[in-house]
Simulated scan of single mutants.
Amino acid sequence: MELLAPDVTLWTDGGGKVRATMLRPVQGRTKVARHIANVARQRSLEEVEIRHRTVNGDPSAVLFADDAPFAVMVLDLDGDQVSNIYAVTNPEKLPKDEQPGG
């Protein structure tokens, strides 16, 4: 929780294809953490691989399941805290050629 700024905002983009996305941004440390935890519960941690990348110059995490990316989370940092999270889960916007472990 300390990594999230008190006024952190989570923006999601599922392109209408992913149920876990929100139509409006989620604001506040507790609400953002709760949303991420709820989405994480939908998948077993054993089947998810997280690869750290830089996306458009920002620190990011690419999440893989079944050898394919299912989400990209781009983080805006304000000092040592995350001020914004942009989660892209729309399959049409995710890289198709990246492999886990690569």
Rank of each mutant, 00 (worst) to 15 (best):
G14E: 09
R43V: 03
A20E: 14
T30E: 15
V55E: 04
G15N: 09
D58S: 12
T54P: 00
G16I: 05
P25L: 10
N38Q: 14
Q42T: 10
N38L: 08
D58V: 02
H52Q: 14
G14V: 00
R41H: 10
G15E: 12
W11I: 09
H52C: 09
A37D: 11
R43D: 11
G14N: 06
T12V: 08
R41S: 12
Q27N: 08
N56C: 09
T30G: 03
K31M: 07
K17I: 02
W11S: 04
R51S: 10
P59N: 00
G28K: 10
T12G: 04
S44D: 15
V39D: 14
L10G: 04
G57E: 05
A40T: 12
R41M: 07
S60Q: 05
R53D: 05
S44C: 02
N56P: 03
K17T: 03
E46V: 05
R43M: 01
A40W: 13
L23R: 11
V48L: 15
A33Q: 08
A33E: 07
H52A: 13
Q42P: 05
V55N: 01
E49G: 01
L45Y: 10
R51A: 09
V18F: 01
H52W: 14
W11E: 11
K31A: 15
T54L: 14
I50T: 14
A40H: 14
P25R: 07
S44N: 13
K31Q: 15
S44P: 02
P59Y: 06
P25Y: 10
V26A: 08
Q42L: 08
V26G: 06
D58P: 00
E49W: 08
M22K: 05
V39T: 14
G15F: 05
V26N: 06
D13I: 00
H52D: 12
S60F: 05
H35M: 11
P25E: 15
V55C: 04
R34S: 13
P25S: 12
R43L: 07
A61Y: 03
R53W: 09
V18H: 03
N56I: 09
T21W: 02
V26P: 02
I36P: 02
R51L: 10
R41T: 09
R43W: 12
R34H: 13
R29A: 11
T21D: 15
H35D: 06
A40V: 05
W11G: 00
P25G: 09
L23Y: 01
L10C: 07
A61E: 11
